[in-house]
Design a protein around this nucleic acid. Sequence first.
RNA 1: GGCUCCAUCGUCUAACGGUUAGGACAGCGGGUUCUCAAUCCGCUAAUCGGAGUUCGAUUCUCCGUGGAGUCACCA
Length: 497
Amino acid sequence: MSDKKIVTRFAPSPTGFLHVGGLRTALYAYLVAKKNNGTFLLRIEDTDRERYVEGGVKNILESLYWANVVPNEGVTLQSESIAQIGSHGPYIQSERLSIYKKYADQLIANKQAYYCFCTPERLAQVREERQKNKLPPGYDGFCKNLTKEEVAQKLAENQNHVVRLNMPDDGETTWNDLIHGEVSFKNTDVDDQVLLKSDGYPTYHLAVVVDDHEMEISHVVRGDEWISSTPKHLQLYSYLGWTPPVFAHLPLLLNTDKSKLSKRQGDVAVLDYKEKGYLPEALINFVAFLGWNPGTPQEIFSFDELVQTFNLNRVGKAGAVFNLEKLDWYNREYLKKMSADDFKNYISAFIPENMKEKIDNGKMLTRLAPILLDRISKGSDLVKMYDEGELTYFFETPKYLPEKLLWKTTPKDQTILNLQGIYDLLSYSKDEDFDVDHVKEEIMEYLQDKEKGGTLHPMRLALSGLDKSPDPFVIAGVLGKKETLSRLKIAIDALSK
RNA sequence: GGCUCCAUCGUCUAACGGUUAGGACAGCGGGUUCUCAAUCCGCUAAUCGGAGUUCGAUUCUCCGUGGAGUCACCA
């Protein structure tokens, strides 16, 4: 890359929630900046007042901060509230209207842009006709030929108008895309885009060029959907006498049916994944690998490793399906790596209040953690698990019928013997918490012996009331000696009746 | 429809023009003297088609085909 300072930006529009595709774009831009000791800035493109969503900016910031993709210039979060830092501000486009106006005027003066007074009805008609005649769609340039006087008169009459880009009638626009290599468009195929809307707000096309230049952006990292408007942007750079930044158009994230990732095929909002229990590291790692790979077998990358390793030249050209199964795998991997304390913290947020009351918040949670981890990493929803009784046995002695205690292959008497033996072995243990591994060894030995039924199912049933549960020794560890023995006793008594 | 982009297992992808086309996820089968899970081992599975260049094409070129994006006073 050049010796110029690397500055990248993420420039979302606050029209809803930040989605995972946006997160990946932001991540790549962030990584390019960080890897080169550069700046990553966040700019808000809120020039569409109709689609503006209250709280949209906050959602974008929360999502980015959660994922650790934190801007060091532009719009940021300072102790929970939105702030702008840096010397190129303001970084919210609706606060920059006069700047866009200035450049629009300059373009008009140089005949590089022109006023257009066409009504929406006429525009629609033109579109339809061109479609019908199999001509390339787009504006027909009607107002380009208005005389100075006509324009002056219409302006004086206060007619509704926009400002359009005056694309050259010949030649072509070419650039060397960091991802795609050389991309080229014939200028005649490029529309005379509206630059300034009739409400005085700029369109994306004017604003993005002006801002990227004024904010000294060196690399524009954005989605492939912008490829076809890049010639317009390049033309503007040329008209305004500016050196364009380097462009990198990222392949799109896709739905399972290969269409552009959208709502409706599942959750796409970044914060949905937070709520579902995905770790930011897992989401980031997963999303980083959608379109990029290090060229080595390594799949698990910490955030720092990504910064070290990432390079746009290893980003592919084809779109990538957003495949949840792999995400789940990443999440499991990161869950497994978590320290006990971190996990306790993490899990705390997912435990329902009524469940929390029954937890002593100390030992209990620590012991419970591995089980919850196990279940969550299998994709279980904790609240649902609790509601469906899958976890209730940790908090209350299960209510079960004696016959449920019988494992199908084991006769009643043998089951009693089985449980009694386990009971005895456990009572010898002096340790209230149980040394699970140690006790387990003894019990397994006991069960292997004699005709005690060789199976662990009675213990599982006695402790959880379910024939499918976590490892009974783990449950015993969680319950503690007293409760474990009590449940075994209840089971033995019930069977002995 | 115009323009543009793209094309390796179901999915994410690797492969100086020379590999039995590799890995990961998922799936399937098996081992680990407890179910599920985890773990270990194994298996299934791909170069869109056709020409051309070349001693040799996944790789380069062209033509098809397929998919996607974009054609707004939305970004």
